[in-house]
Design a protein around this nucleic acid. Sequence first.
DNA 1: CGTGCCGAGCTCGTGGACAAGATTGTCGAC
DNA 2: GTCGACAATCTTGTCCACGAGCTCGGCACG
Lengths: 213, 213
Amino acid sequence: MDKIVDNPHDDGYHRLRAAIVAGDLQPNERLVELDLSERLGIGRTAIRTALVRLESEGLVERERHRGAKVRLVDEQEAGEILQARAVLEGLAARQAALRATDADIAELRRIVAGLRTLLDAGDLLGASDEQAVLHRTVLELSGHATAHRLILALNSQIVRFQYRTILVPGRPERSHEEHSAIVDAIAARDPEAAEAAMRHHLANVAGTLPARR
Amino acid sequence: MDKIVDNPHDDGYHRLRAAIVAGDLQPNERLVELDLSERLGIGRTAIRTALVRLESEGLVERERHRGAKVRLVDEQEAGEILQARAVLEGLAARQAALRATDADIAELRRIVAGLRTLLDAGDLLGASDEQAVLHRTVLELSGHATAHRLILALNSQIVRFQYRTILVPGRPERSHEEHSAIVDAIAARDPEAAEAAMRHHLANVAGTLPARR
DNA sequence: CGTGCCGAGCTCGTGGACAAGATTGTCGAC
DNA sequence: GTCGACAATCTTGTCCACGAGCTCGGCACG
């Protein structure tokens, strides 16, 4: 949809990145430049620059004369990433509370209501997606381009972990309460509470992480 | 000195980056690949990959067929970056408070004492450098590689703003108090206080920013 | 049978050449 | 004198070929 900041000049980068976050390319799988070049129908040069970019985003590792492979974040690093996300999204929630218009708040409430509906229908995966929408909306409301960019980069590194936390027993209800609290704080234009609620929420997500997996 | 995570395979990248953060390359100056190639004695290919990397770090901008130039962060973005740094360094201070050994704390106190000496001698620039050492030490103590990496990237974007905040009248004393508070909180193994002190400190730095410049 | 050496194959790194696109300067019309 | 179209030049983007360095298998030797 919306790219935060991006030159349109390589779509090869986007294709490769998509393949990685979607899991089409397994971790530790060797990413041979010529291979990818043929498979995606892009020149080796483009693949090369894409890999350089992805490396500095932390999505792949490259070793001299040994090729690239998608980087595997271990459990400890995933914890670190979630901690960093927590403080950054806390900042975003704070800013959102300061800037949200009435229309913005209505939009947030609409999303929360949708979440409730999905949960009642037992659609956990759908709810998970809608939660992501909520987070993204808060981020956009914050108007904080820097935090937005950092958080997106962090997120792409832990997609593999992300997706299943909602399947932990009891988690959906807790999660929904936490999200409601975040929206309530923003609606009340209370930046302190908004930041606290967001951090509380992500701390809980981090807490359920080691349980799974 | 210590690179957080880096492939040793391009020093061209480091040279270019150093030239940018040192201010040898002015903002909006056109960075012609062939030019840089000759000036640094590195092949155009290496310059090219270095520019790609620097772009994803936010240090340069590149436009298709129009070349690269060092990116100029405006005042508003500098504020955003300082906010992001504040929460991330707050996280680092928190972790440092949880992990610091007695030896670590002694080291911190030694740095603070050195700062006091420099301030009494009126060496403001020296003090500014020593403050940077203190921040870096806290970061290392935190053992939080992710936060460390993000903060370094953010810092390199605002070196131009950074260096003169200590020249604001009355700032050196305030700053020294704030740094002392951070170290005290870490020494007391109080993560909450450490995070609060760090955020307080960086909020003040951000506050003095728009005054200058 | 285990171990160390060595060579073949593979992959990345680099430089040069060419194409695509943009900018700038010039010329001409009005 | 000013504006617009066009051509020259410059810069980046891409492809290609070759060299550098690593990996892995075979082979000899203890």
